[in-house]
Simulated assay, not measured.
Amino acid sequence: MKSCIIIAGPTASGKTSLAINIARHFDTEIISADSRQCYKELNIGVARPSEKELAEVPHYFIASHSIHESFSAADYERYALDKVQELFQKHDTVVMVGGTGLYIKAFCEGLDEIPASDENIRQDIIRQYEEKGMGWLQQTIQEQDPVFFAHGEIHNPQRVMRALEVKLATGLSITSLRSGQKKKRDFHIIKAAIELPREVLYGRINQRVDQMMEAGLLKEAESLLPYKQLNALQTVGYKEIFSFLDNEISLPRAIELIQQNTRHYAKRQMTWFKKDEEFEWGTAEQLNEKLKIKN
């Protein structure tokens, strides 16, 4: 049976290097599962793999879309399933790597059928969000759908807007439409995730942010400032620099916040992946050896 090896884990844990090692071992290719590295306008702030790394092994879903395109987990499910079947024509094993848990879940298990978008309601929500900001969005979803507010991704504007849209269009909470039924895939899935001691991971995160600043994150963010309301830019690394560029905070404070918010994001990633008992955990070195033998 064909196999897909999934490499997950928190940001800055070394997923890219491990995935490249595994892909080279099996002489195969890589599908990214990162919801931000897919945007061609974003590079430094999303820690996109280097040109050298991309040249070592063919990657898909890297710089493949524009920040002006709307792209959901359901879109990713279709994209990744089509791509993996295409790659299975040439390879018995394909590697997937990334830290976007919902994308990996969609690929492995599928997503529940949620009602189609109501464009009028959706555009009205987007307009109000752009005018009034995240505080308004969170307060509105708390009033309209307290169940989602209590259990959903309330810091992700795209998720909150979608939940609000479903509630206003159907009267139902988006949480009540989730069946929990997993779809069967016709290929073998092997899940592995990198785990590092917290102090080591946090040190790597802080160092990466310093390297991003040295590589030109400020200049990159400046070029994206006109598009700061787009969903693709509601992400750590850009939001904080935008606050500096809007004279709301100092640059040192922005850098400090990027490091702090990235650490928080890494913690949320670990919480997400730990809920999935199918993941095998270890250091990159341990997983490198196990996966080469296991497949």
Rank of each mutant, 00 (worst) to 15 (best):
R198E: 12
T175L: 15
E220C: 14
V160E: 13
R24W: 07
L201M: 07
A23W: 03
Y60V: 10
D118H: 07
L54V: 06
N21E: 15
E285L: 06
E86N: 08
T283N: 07
K184E: 11
I293Y: 08
I104N: 04
E277V: 13
D92E: 13
T283V: 04
R185Q: 02
H188P: 03
P10E: 03
E51T: 13
L54H: 03
K40D: 04
L287R: 04
E278S: 13
A63Y: 06
I5D: 02
L164N: 04
I205Q: 15
T93Q: 02
K167H: 03
G180K: 07
K2G: 02
I174H: 01
F148Y: 10
T11W: 06
K105D: 05
I189N: 00
Y129S: 12
F107Q: 03
I293K: 10
G14M: 10
K2Y: 05
T262V: 01
A192K: 04
G45A: 01
E289M: 05
G216F: 11
D75C: 05
N156G: 13
R159I: 00
D118I: 08
L225T: 08
P197I: 02
Y60L: 09
I20W: 05
L291N: 09
H188Y: 04
Q85N: 13
W136S: 14
K294E: 10
S3E: 08
D186Y: 07
A74W: 14
H68W: 12
E41I: 00
N206A: 13
S64F: 01
N120F: 03
V200Y: 06
E113W: 02
L245D: 02
A193Y: 01
E69D: 14
